[in-house]
């Protein structure tokens, strides 16, 4: 007889990376140390908020479609009109989401388990993306903070260019921005995660892309 209270659930990332073992159980920092890396950040908490125009929630979120911002340790990503993804550590997201006004037509769905998330970082990150996605990754068209939805290696993804903050805090704010390499969060349906991770790694081989 199994004692239901004795079990200890462990979050399993959908991505098995050769360098990270059971990746996703913790967020590593080796991505910051290599020139071009792909890190599994699936374990970040993601909450989808949908709110109709002119609701208090919309004003609280204060991010337009196609943009993102860092606030109180979470990134608010304007994924689609009237739709935002709040990304961050569980406690930060929970705290933030609890403050969202529910007046009007507002809904929340926990996307932590629905969306896998990987971070592609490095000076050649956009060149890797050019091999798997048809969008223009130049800083004019996709600046830091930009949010897009696109097909990446034939998988529908939401991508946030997020150069300057990591894991809930700004990255070395004293560093000159020109030396901070571009960094992209790529979120996809969980079921595609391992395929996509492998496809991006394969595409990035010629630039020395490594799993973090």
């Amino acid at each position: 007889m199994v004692d239901p209270n004795s079990v200890n659930p462990v979050f399993e990332s959908p991505i098995t990376s050769t360098n990270s073992g059971s990746a996703g159980t913790s967020i590593g920092t080796s991505a910051d140390q290599a020139a071009l890396t792909l890190a599994d950040e699936s374990s970040l908490t993601k909450t989808l908020i949908r709110a109709e125009p002119r609701t208090k929630a919309e004003r609280q979120l204060d991010v337009v479609f196609g943009a993102s911002r860092l606030v109180d340790g979470v990134v608010i990503s304007g994924q689609r009109p009237s739709e935002w993804l709040v990304i961050g550590e569980a406690n930060d997201v929970s705290t933030f989401v609890d403050r969202i006004d529910r007046e009007g037509h507002v809904s929340l769905v926990d996307h932590t388990h629905s969306r896998a998330m990987m971070r592609l970082t490095g000076l050649d990150a956009s060149r890797v993306l050019e091999k798997v996605c048809s969008l223009d990754w130049s800083s004019e068209m996709t600046p830091n903070g930009a949010v897009v939805s696109a097909s990446v290696a034939k998988v529908g993804c939401d991508i946030v260019r997020n150069d300057t903050f990591r894991h809930g805090s700004a990255l070395a704010s004293s560093a000159p921005t020109e030396v901070i390499p571009p960094s992209y969060w790529i979120a996809c349906d969980r079921s595609f995660a391992q395929y996509l991770f492998d496809a991006i790694l394969d595409a990035g081989q010629e630039f020395g892309l490594l799993p973090a």
């Binding site: 989808l48 949908r50 629905s114 349906d189």
Partner: peptide
């Protein structure tokens, strides 16, 4: 006023079938 959100792979789905299914599930659902 309806929000439709796909959660197909956010939820892992398992069907437990058979005469002993209730007994089994009862052991894990306090």
């Amino acid at each position: 006023q309806v929000h439709v959100t796909p959660v197909t792979t956010g939820l892992c789905s398992i069907n437990i079938a058979g005469p002993n299914s209730r007994t089994l599930l009862g052991r894990l659902c306090p």
